[in-house]
Design a protein around this nucleic acid. Structure first.
Length: 589
RNA sequence: GGUUGCAUAGCUCAAUUGGAUAGAGCAACUGCCUUCUAAGUAGUAGGUUCCAGGUUCGAACCCUGGUGCGACCA
């Protein structure tokens, strides 16, 4: 729509002798109840014209219509200049742009971006909160790719620390040598089970000590289990062979389990980082910062940064005994990532509970003079809460990722079979379809909401398959493919066959035309929700068209060919949009 | 205590980044399948955009002060 903006700039210059930039022209889609396709808001120009908004609109409208061949008319309502563009323009747009294979595909922009997401702990299986994280990370990565970035998907695995030792210790004490093979439990679930066992036994010990007269705080410190777990961590850090062997064994179980979950979810990574290898990084940078005077040492030898001038607090970056805190290793890991990839941007997909942490981290890196610190971004998202409140692994009040995915598939199966649509499907095709639909419903449910908003999930209310849902969009795609298949039509550089458009057809072309700017906006905001809402609108518009206009029994051959082109283009863009969300669409359902 | 995010129809969410009469889905009610897939579609009903001020041609959106829920920092 650049030619309209240019014409508007020209109009203001010619009519009112004022120079305005293209960005000053407020262009938007015309509301459906008015005639026209694009609207210019005239209020900002009133100060140049010194006339009423209506009059200003009339003058600019007349100028543009005269200037631009594709503009066939205009109207001004309450200061809004609605511009009518010819059907011929839109038909040409459909055939030469929208239906072409490169539509919505941006050329490489030469920039590299790293997206870190998932970042699980190896002491428990993934839950619904992780699913949101994984889907967001994967989708944002795909969206950035579509915008021309080179993307590196990274996963920083938290594979060490006291929490891991808890699982290890509980397994040693109460596991009786149980393995994934012997228990038929998925590896991550087996390890997670002992994390819960630890907590239960630990609580028993605390209760006992309290009964013996200790305070709760004392008991928590003195319980034998927690002391033993701490000793285990020390042994791990000292490289004790027995502990390391156990750690490696149990981690390998967890990784096998995660691999399966990731596969089901359809996410992947280009680069793994392990905290067991990065947790000692960053100390040299702290030293460097001390030299530069960015940090200061307290009397006890601990190292701090004073961020009070930036509205934050003083923050510890190295303990008095020289050991790291989270901040230390995050500083080090950021440097490691940059040295390795020199990415222009680096995105951390992490929950909003860590907003403060990342604010501090980025600020520290900036103060250290790291040129790349400006490219860091924390994609913060809201927690997934249950009606009962926050999910807690230790207390077992979580919606397990594997369970939920299996349930969704099962529901998809029941619903599909009730509709009797898969009678002639092979067993493999059926399972593939149920997986596609179940995951489509789940993924769409999580991604259609703005990332920063927190999400309520009620396990007792199943995720819908009708209305504003993934399956609705998948269904629309399958429906189009069915029509195309009957006619044997595929997009293949056909020439335009009609010269006029019906209202629903025009509406559909306009919606399709929005695709590239939608992708750009989604990347700018790091928001898959923008794509999700767009593709829903598109599917709805198509269904309206489908309902009103017969395709295969069109009035004449020209209309039929045109509607097939329109349908094929819609199917393609639905497919592309859904792929950006990590959702597959079926040929039949 | 300090910092920060959120608050829109009974419920779940939108609103082209300050634009026209705030839109969808679910739930409720009424139509449309011997015609391209009814997981669809057409319609009815549902609103003091948390409250009170302010900024301007125009505020759900920006500013100030509250209220409620959450998170984080001590």
């Amino acid at each position: 729509m650049n030619f309209i903006v240019d014409a508007a700039v020209k109009a203001v210059k010619a009519l009112y002798q004022a120079d305005i930039a293209a960005a000053d022209v407020n262009l938007q889609q015309t509301r459906k109840e008015f005639e026209g396709q694009v609207t210019i808001v005239t209020f900002p120009f009133v100060k140049f014209s010194r006339k009423s908004p209506e009059q200003t609109g009339q003058e600019i409208g007349a100028f543009i219509q005269n200037e631009v061949a594709e503009v066939s008319g205009f109207n001004v309502i309450k200061g809004f200049l609605n511009i009518v563009i010819t059907d011929a323009y839109w038909i040409k747009q459909l055939y030469t742009e929208i239906a072409s294979s490169g539509f919505g595909h941006f050329a490489p922009n030469g920039q590299k971006v790293m997206v870190e997401y998932s970042s699980p702990n190896t002491n428990k299986p993934l839950h619904l909160g992780h699913i949101r994280n994984n889907l967001l990370g994967y989708s944002v990565a795909e969206i950035l790719k579509a915008n021309g970035y080179e993307v590196i998907k990274a996963n920083l695995v938290n594979d060490r620390g006291i929490h891991i030792c808890k699982s290890m210790l509980a397994w040693q004490k109460f596991g009786h040598g149980e393995t994934p093979e012997s228990s038929t439990l998925k590896g991550d679930h087996l390890v997670g089970k002992y994390y819960v066992v630890f907590d239960q036994e630990y609580k028993k010990e605390i209760a006992e000590l309290v009964a013996q007269g200790q305070t709760e705080v004392e008991a928590k410190k003195n319980a034998p289990l927690i002391i033993e777990a701490q000793q285990m961590l020390e042994k791990w850090e000292a490289g004790d062979k027995e502990v390391i062997d156990l750690w490696e064994t149990m981690n390998s179980w967890v990784y096998a389990g995660f691999a399966e979950t990731y596969k089901q979810l359809g996410v992947d990574f280009d680069q793994y980082y392990y905290e067991s290898k990065t947790y000692l990084l960053g100390k040299d940078i702290i030293e460097e910062g001390l030299q530069k005077g960015v940090f200061y040492k307290k009397y006890d030898g601990s190292v701090w940064i004073d961020l009070t001038a930036d509205g934050l607090d003083e923050k510890l970056v190295l303990r008095a005994n020289g050991t790291s805190v989270y901040m230390t290793q995050d500083v080090g890991t950021a440097q490691l990532k940059y040295d390795q990839y020199h990415a222009d941007k680096s995105i951390y997909v992490v929950g909003n509970e860590q907003d403060y942490h990342f604010k501090v981290l980025f600020l520290i890196l900036q103060k250290l003079g790291k040129s790349w610190a400006n490219g860091l971004y924390h994609l913060s998202y809201g927690m997934v809460d249950l009606p009962s409140g926050k999910m807690k692994s230790r207390e077992g009040t979580v919606v397990d990722a594997d369970d939920l995915m299996a349930e969704m598939e099962q529901t998809a199966k029941i619903q599909t079979e009730a509709l009797g649509k898969t009678a002639d499907f092979s067993e493999t095709d059926k399972n593939q379809l149920y997986h596609m639909i179940g995951m489509g419903a789940l993924k769409y449910f999580l991604l259609k909401v703005e990332p920063k908003k927190r999400l309520l999930f009620d396990p007792n209310e199943s995720i819908d398959f009708q209305g504003h849902t993934g399956p609705f969009i998948q269904y629309t795609h399958a429906r189009i493919r069915s029509v195309l298949k009957r006619s044997g039509f595929e997009l293949n550089g056909q020439a335009a066959t009609v010269t006029e458009l019906a209202d629903v057809e025009l509406e559909l072309v306009l919606s399709l035309n929005q695709f590239p700017e939608t992708i750009a906006q989604a990347a700018k905001d790091y928001s898959p929700a923008i794509i999700a809402n767009y593709v829903y609108e598109l599917a709805k518009t198509y269904n309206k068209f489908y309902h009103e206009k017969s395709i295969l029994q069109a009035e004449d051959e020209q209309s039929k060919q045109f509607r097939l082109t329109l349908s094929a283009a819609t199917a393609k863009i639905i497919n592309k949009s859904m792929r950006l969300l990590g959702i597959d669409v079926p040929e039949r359902m």
